[in-house]
Design a protein around this nucleic acid. Structure first.
Lengths: 347, 347
DNA sequence: TCGTGTTACTAACGCGTGTTACTATTATAT
DNA sequence: ATATAATAGTAACACGCGTTAGTAACACGA
């Protein structure tokens, strides 16, 4: 028993064929005629020698690494508050696995660093890249796009014509606010999920305004506050809204995590939810059904988001021209107790 | 302007030296004497040609991929409930980056699949591996260990002598329960974070029993329930404890997520926390300070966990013999409102 | 018998780098 | 003047695979 790794040459020798034939057979190359018996012999030899083709040699020869990069651009705090990452990861790795691709992960706190992830592409370590939470001030992004490197954004970037996968934030927010209006609310506050220069944040803000507009309710800037990803920002924003001369009767918080802080602020004032203040969130994090009260919120298909991003990217890598390079996934309003509508106890 | 990627040969030509010299200079090989002027010329040529060494060729030649694998073995539901993944990822990628290593991520729902991640190692795609949430029935794991492949577990596996990084679950749980005892509680319930065959779960159970034992309180099996990662399991378990003829006056829930379900169950019965039922959790998830009431819990250093796992693995890859192959990170009890001790309002 | 396919392969090149062993030149010591 | 050592490199092999172009053997119809 040799201690050394077997290579395709060893397999070829044992099977009594050439290395070329081994390659043809193990890679299931089509258009080559090889009798079943020979194929069997080669497979058996490979099994016997415990042969695994060397990934580096394969990449070098084929020019493809069979790896895609996933870049997380959120800064530390925001990343930690992203409760969907596990699902997104699962979605993208599941899809990649189906095409024999692997996923390389990189976290990038500072997008404007000279070489945060560009070298991954330049060194040919990856065949394509998914960028989660892209920033418009990202120089490298523009370069990669210009070079025609396969690239998909997870989260939209306004003003750039780059393939992306995102949730329909406008429609989702609109749905949430329309629901509150339907319940009779006229003064509806808004706490955004993040500063408005984030596309998702702006979109949810738009949805809010559209819903108001279509119901003939005037937009009142006094009722709007900007959240900042984390619970604390929701807590603070809500306190401000509660301190208003005439406070709103309902509030749409464009992030469940931020809403979690808002709920705490409302309870702290001794107000009842939803009687004194109705709340609708966004994201439908796992904890939402168990909040106090269970949170009405807009469901976000996290797994699907990752899966679709992978799908789109792999199409680009294969050189296909996808029918849609702009994928907007639908959301769904999940009605629980915090909005005041009748609903089941949990979930 | 040539459209093709530059390779080291091109750089050599432009700088007027041999390819070998280029390699020496760009890789900062020590023990080779080259005047500053030549070095400058080569660096300049590389810059000018926008040269990035090919990762595959480099791996093939050196036998090292400079990539480590991170395998997430939790099944879908449990993975989604793992709120620390982003922090752990950040810890491990941060560390890896410092040594010029990348992180390849794989999710594995079914550990007993014939080749869930083994091929990553066999194909030489990675130089080492971190396995998060290892299972004792994992065949591949044993194989890798037997082959001497650099491997670190994140989460302990009892009965196997494999390098690991984990949090000190026993001490943490003990600390939590001792705190409740100090507050005067005698009948203290336990809801585990997961079934007991999970090492972390068993350890926290042990810590619970140790604390009782040292206080001279008899262990009462009737007060113990097994959680199962998710909120719902905590909700159900708590309902059972509340249905007991004489219910406990406090409960230690060995997971904040599970505790979140338990809190909902307690409130549903109209009981007050902590007056009617004190609660201490485990993990210190971000939402803990904003729960109703803010949850007293055992802080878990997630970033550090990832960082240390990477550190240990990279030592093994470098062929060093780490001074400790068993890393137990300390926890810290964070006192908030749910336990009934006096504390600041938030955090 | 000759030419044309068809079947079942193989020889050999190319991918781009790391690295060892070796050389040519110059400086220094004897 | 000659031996020795330091300096500044280079030639050439190895890494393991994918892939193109080509070939030997045989069948078969004209």
């Amino acid at each position: 028993m040799s201690r050394k790794r077997a290579n395709s040459h060893d397999v070829a020798k044992l099977a009594g064929v050439s290395r070329t034939t081994v390659s043809f057979i193990l890679n299931r190359v089509t258009g080559v005629q090889i009798p079943e018996e020979t194929r069997r012999r080669v497979w058996e030899a490979a099994r016997q020698l415990n042969y695994y083709p060397d990934a580096a040699a394969r990449s070098l020869a084929s020019g493809k690494s069979h790896v895609i990069g996933l870049i997380l651009c959120q800064q530390a705090d925001h990343l930690a508050a992203d409760l969907f990452l596990p699902e997104v990861l699962r979605g993208i790795t599941d899809n990649a696995r189906g095409w024999d691709f692997r996923v390389l992960l990189e976290t990038v706190a500072n997008v404007s660093a000279p070489d945060a992830y560009l070298s991954l592409a330049r060194e040919r370590q990856i065949d394509g890249i998914v960028i989660s939470g892209p920033r418009s001030d990202d120089q490298q992004l523009g370069q990669l796009v210009a070079e025609g490197f396969p690239l998909v954004l997870q989260g939209r970037l306004r003003g750039a014509d780059i393939p992306f996968v995102d949730v329909d934030n406008v429609a989702g927010a609109k749905q949430a606010v329309a629901h509150l209006i339907r319940l009779g609310h006229q003064r509806i506050g808004l706490i955004t999920n993040a500063p408005l220069h984030y596309t998702a944040s702006e979109d949810r803000y738009r949805g809010y305004r559209q819903a108001l507009s279509e119901a003939g309710i005037a937009y009142d800037e006094a009722l709007m506050r900007q959240g900042d990803f984390v619970e604390e920002s929701g807590y603070q924003a809500m306190r401000e809204l509660l301190g208003l001369p005439t406070r709103p009767s309902a509030v749409f918080v464009a992030s469940d995590v931020v809403a979690f802080g808002a709920l705490a602020a409302i309870r702290e004032q001794g107000l009842r939810i939803p009687q004194d203040m109705a709340v609708v969130g966004f994201d439908d994090i796992r904890l939402a059904p168990y909040m106090h009260p269970p949170l009405t919120t807009v469901h976000l298909p996290a797994y699907e988001l990752g899966w679709q991003a992978g799908d789109l990217l792999l199409q680009l890598i294969r050189g296909e021209t996808p029918m849609r390079t702009a994928v907007l996934l639908p959301t769904e309003l999940v009605i629980r107790r915090s909005c005041g509508a009748r609903a089941r106890q949990k979930d």
